[in-house]
Simulated assay, not measured.
Amino acid sequence: MYYKRYLKERKQFGAPLAAFQITQQKLVQMMGNIQAMILVGWRLCKLYESGKMTAGRVSLGKAWITSKARETVSLGRELLGGNGILTDFLVAKAFCDLEPIHTYEGTYEINSLVAAREITGISSFKPAALTQRSRM
């Protein structure tokens, strides 16, 4: 993990960045997000294997995982400061790789609506049939 090396080597105010509380909190949040994303993906696989997978569960997982992945990459960018936008540290590449996943796997919004349809039983993304004629 290049973050670890960078944060130990880069000094700010006479101490390595890794020594600061906010830095450590962001690292823990990143690692927690990664672990949670893996576990959600694992659980979805188990639901599929047992025949209990639904479109709503898949959509909820995809929406949540892509949201957490974007948050995690953003935290990494913050940890590296200006170096987070340089190609040397691959954070900008991670941003670019993540955006198509967030968009082309079904946008976050659509996945959220599919999950909500399963929760409420009401589809909010299918236009209502036009049964009444306009008075104009």
Results as ranks from 00 to 15, higher is better:
1 M>Y: 15
3 Y>P: 00
3 Y>M: 02
4 K>V: 07
4 K>C: 14
6 Y>H: 15
6 Y>A: 12
9 E>R: 13
10 R>P: 08
12 Q>C: 14
13 F>G: 04
13 F>D: 11
14 G>P: 06
15 A>T: 13
16 P>E: 05
17 L>H: 03
18 A>I: 01
19 A>T: 08
21 Q>Y: 07
21 Q>N: 11
21 Q>L: 12
21 Q>E: 09
23 T>H: 06
23 T>I: 04
23 T>V: 13
23 T>K: 03
24 Q>R: 12
24 Q>N: 06
24 Q>E: 06
24 Q>P: 04
25 Q>D: 14
25 Q>T: 12
25 Q>S: 12
26 K>L: 15
27 L>H: 01
28 V>R: 09
28 V>K: 09
30 M>W: 00
30 M>A: 09
31 M>R: 10
32 G>W: 00
34 I>W: 05
34 I>Q: 01
35 Q>Y: 13
36 A>V: 10
37 M>L: 09
37 M>F: 03
38 I>H: 09
40 V>L: 02
40 V>C: 00
40 V>R: 01
40 V>A: 02
42 W>A: 03
43 R>Y: 05
43 R>D: 05
43 R>H: 09
44 L>K: 03
45 C>T: 04
45 C>N: 08
46 K>F: 00
46 K>C: 02
46 K>A: 04
47 L>G: 05
48 Y>R: 13
48 Y>V: 02
54 T>S: 14
55 A>F: 10
56 G>T: 04
56 G>I: 03
58 V>E: 00
58 V>L: 05
60 L>F: 07
60 L>R: 05
61 G>D: 02
61 G>M: 03
62 K>Q: 07
63 A>R: 09
64 W>I: 04
66 T>I: 04
67 S>H: 06
72 T>Y: 02
72 T>W: 00
73 V>A: 13
75 L>P: 01
77 R>Y: 11
78 E>F: 05
79 L>C: 13
79 L>N: 06
80 L>M: 11
81 G>K: 06
82 G>E: 12
83 N>M: 15
84 G>N: 00
84 G>I: 00
85 I>P: 01
86 L>C: 14
88 D>N: 15
88 D>I: 13
91 V>W: 00
92 A>M: 07
93 K>G: 08
96 C>N: 07
100 P>G: 11
101 I>C: 09
101 I>R: 05
102 H>M: 14
102 H>R: 11
103 T>L: 10
103 T>H: 08
106 G>S: 09
106 G>I: 00
107 T>K: 02
110 I>T: 13
111 N>F: 07
113 L>P: 01
115 A>Q: 07
115 A>W: 03
115 A>C: 08
115 A>G: 12
115 A>H: 10
116 A>C: 12
117 R>E: 09
118 E>G: 07
120 T>W: 15
120 T>Y: 15
120 T>I: 15
121 G>N: 06
122 I>M: 08
124 S>Y: 10
125 F>Y: 13
125 F>R: 06
125 F>D: 09
126 K>N: 11
126 K>M: 11
131 T>L: 15
132 Q>I: 12
132 Q>K: 15
133 R>E: 12
134 S>N: 11
135 R>A: 13
